[in-house]
Design a protein around this nucleic acid. Structure first.
Lengths: 339, 339
DNA sequence: CATAATTAGTTAAACGTTTAACTAAGGACA
DNA sequence: TGTCCTTAGTTAAACGTTTAACTAATTATG
């Protein structure tokens, strides 16, 4: 049969459609023999309930929306892609599907919300990375479960999966300090971004703890997206006036690569003359040549954790406003060395 | 109102729900004034039709399934991820969503099909990369539109988006030939894979055209997945007995990197002693150090093209069994040089 | 002027489930 | 023996749309 429905099963098993439905949901009011009879019919007809019909009456779609900004989506760095893959992975374990969409990086009040929300086509929403707070506000009105990953909104108190950026910043800086560096630069992106400010705080904390002077000239923040070319620019500013910097901690790998580009262009060797460490570990997999020391962020795991929070909330209904802090790891490769 | 339905709109506009539906579908039987009245009510109530209800009656879900194998999914190479991203991108242009799932690389007849098919939760399926033919057979039974990307099934005649692998293989080989190389090795993966065999054919064609002898000892196929470590292994076999190879064309970038790993470990310099060229261009974005010459494959565009085929089929219903051949591009970087 | 055709809308069935409320048949109990 | 529980199932409404078939009013046609 083309597409058997619950009616076909009921007919074949000689019961009402309600009975079939109850069997599917393993309801206790059904006797052993009837259950068996129905299950056989289901098997023989190769019947599966229609998602649309189910969704209509139960108001559950089995879909989770995944939102990130254009910027994060289009940058080819696989950072958010890997988080997404993680959610996909865990979704499958829980019989869910993920609908991905993007919103403009400067979402306005008048902009339409993602279609899957308006059409009530998701049971919950995972938001990855920094999004405009106006968006967060609007999403909250839909009372759909909302989970943030790699970004903690300031106002709202939602379950969140974040990297221990502060610790990571400390680890990166301490690694350079342990290698004997004293004049350690920092290159950051938008300081308003929680992740970046936390990494910066880790840097300053480590420096202070080691009783190293925090030289303002050794610190550079770019306003733009923290991309490779901006790392290059930042390095040019940094090294023009500070010939004595021997190590730089970049707030992410892309900027670290830009810094290395600059140093090479200007006759400095990495790591012989200058050590450089990044953050995120997005370079490793398919790279060639001297590799980048960095702080690894478990991107897939973050997605997995976010989806776990979502799924347990949907099943158990407890909104344990949890904050999952995923661990970071120092990865020492060939862009840092002892002084 | 929490979730306005078509009834609420009808009541507010003083018409029947049918009229509201007709307005939504821009049916011509509705007068200008009524249409205006209804649109206002829709606007004021902030009404959007429910996807589930719509799906139930129209038998259209607005979702497209995207299937690839575990292997392709779990390998961290961003090849298929980028194709997926491309489908996502184009999906949004066409008011569609993409449901991603994987199947086992050796899918058996008894394995269950992806849930979104059984639950009738997709309007079409895009299959990325090589999948077991038994899966293709089973999928065909559902008469859902089926589009293949980066893989052309042998038996079935479906619309397909593929790379011009043959041309790419020629381009890579010709590049080495133009650089003066004569003893050019080839490292391939599973020769049964259409993409790989095409690349190999391109290699042999270019060699023959240049009247270079095809030395069987210069050619190595690995049986396993064409990954970095396997490239290393292949190189070790190749160079053990053939000291005079000056250039290698690897069937993909991952193997090329493995070959470079081997050469470095054995005191050979790339490109000074041996030139190496890959295929796919998956290394570029975030790499460091001497970069890999390769044949670029427009991964995102492939996804876009596949979704375009799907969307136009769903709209116009013409199954123009098209074969879209996406162009490749020679990217000369620092892993190849003139002899 | 009667009839046909057109226009603009309504009615009602259908899509395939879930589930609250009901029922019928036994058995337990006073 | 009549009443009350249980047990195991059924009935029917509901979910929110789409759309074929219908209707009523207006306009065109012979």
């Amino acid at each position: 049969m083309a597409n058997p429905t619950i009616k076909d099963v009921a007919k074949m098993a000689n019961v009402s459609i309600a009975t079939v439905s109850l069997v599917i949901h393993d309801h206790k009011r059904i006797s052993r023999v009837t259950k068996q009879k129905v299950l056989e019919a289901i098997e023989r007809l190769n019947y599966y309930p229609s998602r649309s019909a189910r969704g209509l009456v139960s108001q559950k779609t089995g879909n989770i929306g995944f939102i990130l900004t254009n910027d994060h989506f289009l940058r080819t760095e696989p950072f958010y892609t890997n988080i997404f893959i993680g959610t996909e992975f865990e979704a499958r374990e829980n019989e869910l599907y993920v609908l991905l969409t993007t919103v403009d990086s400067n979402f306005k009040d008048s902009d339409p919300l993602p279609r899957f929300i308006l059409e009530r086509n998701v049971d919950g929403i995972i938001i990855a990375g920094k999004v405009p707070s106006i968006l967060t506000e609007k999403l909250c009105d839909f009372n759909l479960p909302l989970i943030f990953v790699d970004f903690q909104p300031v106002k709202r108190n939602c379950p969140v999966v974040v990297v221990d950026n502060n610790l990571g910043g400390k680890m990166a800086t301490n690694h350079l300090i342990e290698y004997g560096h004293k004049n350690i630069g920092f290159v950051g992106g938008d300081i308003d971004h929680p992740s970046i400010s936390e990494r910066y705080k880790g840097y300053t904390a480590a420096m202070e703890q080691a009783k190293l002077t925090l030289n303002k000239n050794f610190i550079d923040f770019v306003e733009d997206y923290p991309a490779r070319t901006n790392g290059f620019q930042a390095a040019s500013r940094l090294f023009k006036n500070n010939k004595d910097i021997t190590a730089v901690f970049a707030c992410n790998d892309a900027m670290a690569l830009g810094i290395i580009d600059y140093l090479k262009d200007n006759g400095k060797r990495v790591p012989e003359d200058v050590s450089v460490i990044g953050f995120d570990d997005v370079v490793s997999e398919n790279s060639n040549g001297p590799s980048l020391s960095t702080i690894r962020v478990p991107k897939m795991e973050m997605g997995v954790e976010a989806m776990k929070l979502m799924s347990s909330f949907l099943k158990e209904g407890i909104n344990h406003n949890k904050k999952v802090l995923v661990p970071v790891e120092l990865i020492i490769r060939n862009s840092t060395q002892k002084i």
